[in-house]
Design a protein around this nucleic acid. Structure first.
Length: 513
RNA sequence: GGCGCAUUCGUCUAGUGGCCUAGGACGCCGCCCUCUCAAGGCGGAGAUCACGGGUUCGAAUCCCGUAUGCGCUGCCA
């Protein structure tokens, strides 16, 4: 226990920025956590440094299967590649705290020896009772009553001989002030008497967050600790620990939390979707990063679209502010649309294809449509629908009629505004004839002929076109009609018009009767 | 209850003593474009800068107090 563990302290030559994100694998990461990841990553990359992942798996009861893989998958999707961490390794590993137990034991012993820590033999039961009583009496100070802080050595020895389990607590100064230097908020002072003798080592030999994070950040050469501001209240404990070890502190930046619509910290309960939800729903990682980067940070007073390169180039802590931000899905959707519109058709086709080809139950095209989707056809379709998409997942709904064989829609839709059934039928009939006669299946020519037809019939183009639109697409909202028909092709368009005529006939009879 | 942090349009934000009768963006509304829906263009509503006191010739910006919100108060992280 007293041997120095085989650590490789970070000894990177030139001064550099090293940041980390330290998730505990207790569930799915949501977008709030990823905002902190984005900040940490951008800061590291901006400073030409490293960003690492360290898994804080010190709570054996709350471990969730697959949580680490899930996080890694989210990172991969976002295009954020940790320089060190699970899966990639690195010079200061291991990057799982459960594999660093010897480090914590070593430093715990050191703390015990130096008198900065002490063994606590109190049972969980006693602590629970203590807490219950404190709460019942509404005492101004809660927390451990420091019973074991001054245990006589004989008792300690005896307890040890008897094999009584113990925790190691930090011996917090009883008075004075501990200052937490936070680069975003300035110095935050805490009266030591309001601090608790927190547990550093649990009785199972695992460290608590307070202990492990300090040791690991030190050993891993972390220069900037970015974490949610919910950590600020326990930061003085960490400061005390750095001081007890005589280590230089990293720069602390307690970034504001991301909140849900209700103004409360984002959590599973507040509609905080796991990050992969956004992937599955057709959001682009570059848009998500852009959006997230602007939650608590800003570039200037007018810029809101920034590429990852631009973000890396311009990100800095002094433009991070300190109040919480509510996650606004509408704004993300808008931004996602901006990115979609900026893509080339080839890129868009490439990226949208997997979304369209997945099963209908997962949001893809109707299962009756054969996969794979014809690439060339897809590009022609996407040219028309690109500006109508907010997410990649929208494509299936938007474009399905281009690929379907049978259209289903209420026949009444075929009757344009201000028309009766017979007029609509006649218009459709003439439209069919006109289009069937078109020597070339080209949108401008078709439009010219159809406008002439409208004039001849004494109809407004709008209602006439609407009937054709519904006939050909089964929708009331589509891309420009004639370009749509051009893409759809002569045969299919005319066939759909014939079907529409058949559907309309009963309505005409009904109206006449 | 104790401790801490925060507080500019509904939302994200700009603003670090005079350029602010507070700017941009999302959303909303209207107009234009137009065969529908989008996209785009133009315009509009929307913030007495939480409130109250100071400091100052001058405050969203500095100080104090209050209120409200959020967070922490676990052998969770």
């Amino acid at each position: 226990m007293s041997d120095v563990p085989a650590v490789s302290h970070f000894t990177g030559g030139t001064p550099t920025v090293r940041t980390r994100f330290a998730p505990s694998p207790t569930g799915q990461m949501h977008i709030g956590g990823f905002r902190t990841i984005v900040f940490s990553w951008l800061l590291a990359k901006h400073g030409n440094g490293q960003f690492l992942i360290r898994v804080e798996d010190t709570d054996r009861n709350r471990m969730v299967e697959g949580a680490v893989e899930n996080l890694l998958e989210g990172l991969r999707w976002m295009g954020i590649t940790p320089d060190e961490g699970p899966g990639v390794g690195g010079p200061v590993g291991p990057y799982f705290q459960s594999q660093r137990l010897d480090h914590y034991a070593y430093y715990a012993a050191q703390l015990l020896a130096s008198g900065h820590g002490y063994r606590c033999f109190c049972t969980k039961e006693r602590l629970d009772e203590l807490r219950a009583e404190q709460q019942a009496r509404h005492l101004p100070t809660t927390g451990y009553d420091r019973l074991c802080r001054a245990l006589p050595q004989e008792i300690i020895d005896q307890n040890l001989r008897e094999g009584k389990p113990f925790t190691v607590r930090l011996k917090v100064p009883l008075d004075g002030v501990t200052m937490v230097p936070d680069i975003l908020r300035g110095d935050v002072d805490f009266q030591n008497k309001t601090l608790e003798d927190v547990i550093l080592m649990k009785s199972d030999g695992y460290p608590t967050y307070h202990f492990a994070n300090v040791i690991d950040d030190h050993e891993m050469g972390i220069t900037h600790v970015l974490r949610g501001d919910d950590w600020l209240p326990s930061a003085p404990v960490h400061v005390l620990l750095y001081r007890a070890f005589g280590w230089q502190m990293p720069i602390f930046a307690h970034v504001p939390n991301v909140m849900g619509n209700d103004g409360k910290k984002l959590s599973k309960r507040h509609g905080a979707e796991p990050i992969l939800f956004y992937r599955d729903n057709g959001y682009l990682p570059e848009a998500v990063i852009n959006y997230l980067s602007l939650l608590g940070w800003s570039y200037d007073d007018k810029t809101d679209i920034l590429s990852v390169d631009e973000l890396i180039r311009s990100f800095s802590l002094d433009r991070v502010h300190t109040s919480g931000a509510i996650f606004d899905l509408e704004r993300l959707r808008w931004m996602n649309g901006v990115y979609i519109r900026a893509m080339s058709l080839e890129q868009l086709a490439e990226r949208v294809l997997p979304y369209m080809e997945r099963p209908a139950a997962e949001g893809g095209l109707p299962d009756t449509i054969k996969r794979p989707i014809n690439r060339e056809m897809l590009m022609r379709v996407l040219r028309l629908d690109q500006e109508r998409m907010k997410t990649l997942a929208d494509a299936a709904q938007l474009t399905a009629f281009f690929f379907e064989d049978e259209l289903a829609y209420p026949p009444e839709w075929l009757i344009g505004k201000g028309l009766n059934a017979a007029q609509a039928r006649d218009g459709l009939q003439r439209a069919y004839a006109t289009l069937a006669d078109s020597p070339e299946w080209e949108h401008a020519a078709m439009e010219a002929r159809m406008r002439a037809l409208a004039e001849e019939l004494g109809m407004k183009p709008g209602p006439l076109f609407m009937g054709v639109r519904v006939a050909v697409t089964g929708r009331k909202e589509t891309p420009p009609l004639f370009e749509t028909m051009e893409v759809l092709g002569r045969e299919r368009s005319l066939a759909r018009l014939r079907d529409a005529l058949a559907k309309l006939e009963p309505l005409v009879s009904a109206a006449g009767a």
